[in-house]
Structure formats: structure tokens, C-alpha cells
Amino acid sequence: MLQKRLIICLDVRDGRTTKGVKFQGNVDIGDPVAMAAEYYAQGVDELVFYDITASAEKRGIMIETVKAVARTVFIPFCVGGGIRSLADMNAVMLAGADKISVNSAAVRQPDIISDGACHYGSQCIVLGMDVKSDPAMPSGYGVVIDGGRVNTGLDMLAWAREAVDRGAGEIVLNSIDADGTQNGYELRATRLLGDAVSVPVVASGGAGVPEHIPQVFQKGRAEAALVASMVHSGRYTVADIKEAMAKAGIGVRGC
């Protein structure tokens, strides 16, 4: 039986990790490769790197980061942020990423999902989906893009189903309402989506304490949970979270 996955997300700008990073110990907290090595040693199941580099001329730095991560950790990792074409995907995959995540670009140009799935297979194509509670939508949640600033008018479930039909192999559901609150994941949206699509759903946004992770597996319907600041801050380790999962009776990778 497949185990539930714990995924750590790192935001990278101009080759340096940013946002809420206060890692303790002798790890260079600005270096995404050193952080990846530390989390790999701690036993995390997977990593995600989001490139939040603003300027186009600095985008090449991310490829160097991806190459260095791929030489250092021997677990799967996904790269997202700023991927707008098959050529962007190809550069990231050749550098050694296992998966590519598309978000705003996929809403603007859904063919990028089909093209990516056709070239690399569905297991490599991850749809990142930011949602906000919206009573006007059939599911109660609408899709937003550009970091939550733009409403797309798309219903969460309608867009998710279209993305799966186009070949997305996994969906990362990020709740804008829960993100940054540290009050726990948006369980209702996670359950709705998990019940609606045939592909794995990764819950994202809102985790603050280890107990939030078993909660999203039991009350939401996720195959994986993504965390960031709760580990970057040094407050919790991978072991703390996996212990909370095991205590709740959730199958977790130990060895």
C-alpha cells in the first residue's frame, strides 16, 4: 500500500531560498542545495522548488540550482515557477528534475499540460492550483492566478477535471485562504478535490504544527502534504511530522 508523502517546498529567488527561512544549525539557509541535502538527510519524501525570480535574465540561475540538487539528493523533486513553454520544461527536465509544475501559465494556455504530458508522461506533469473560497462557484471554490491577485472565473473542480483530461498526473491544491495562517489545511476543498479526480492530490497551505499533516490525510483526501515555513523556521523537523503521522495510524515511510 502506498504511503502518504511529506513534501517540503522551497521558494527560490535568484538562486537563493527566501520566505520565512530561519533554519537552525550549520546549514546555509540561503542555499537551496544545502537545504535540500539537510531535508534529504532528515528523511523527507519529496521536494518542490518554486522559482520566484522576477527577471528573465536571471532565470538561468535556477537551472544551475536544479542541476546541483539533482547531484545531491536521491529522492524525487519537482520544479515550478515561470514555466511557460515546452522548451522551459525541457530545460528543467534535462537538468534532472523529476516533475514540472505549471500554474498560471496552464490557465492562460492549457495546451502546455497536454504538450508536457505527451512528451514526458502524466507522472511528470503537476498542476499547481491556487483556490479561494467563492460562493458563486458550483464547488464553492474559484481558481486564482498570479499569486492570488487575479480571479480566473474558473471553478476549482471544473478546472481540475480539465487538467486531468489533458494529462496532469498530480494536482497541488493551494488554498489562498489558509496559506500563511498556520491554522491547518483547507480540509473541505481538499476532500472535494480528492473525491473528484482520479490523480493524486497534494494539500498545500496552512500547515503550522505536525498534527495538521495527519489531519489532512484523515479529514481531507490527500495523497501528500506540502509544508514550508514550519520546517524552514526550525520549529519542527521531518521526524516530528512523521511521528505525528505514525501516531495517527497513517502509513509513512520510515526506513
Binding site: 500500500m1 502506498l2 504511503q3 502518504k4 508523502r5 519524501d45 502524466s122 507522472q123 498526473g169 498530480e170 482520479s198 490523480v199 493524486p200 495523497e223 501528500a224 515511510r253
Partner: peptide, 10 residues
């Protein structure tokens, strides 16, 4: 059971 199978399995 989700398809594809993605993740760690004993």
C-alpha cells in the same frame, strides 16, 4: 486507488 501510482510503497 489513484492512477498513476505516485509515491513510496513497501
Amino acid at each position: 486507488f489513484k492512477v498513476p501510482q505516485i509515491g513510496w510503497n513497501p
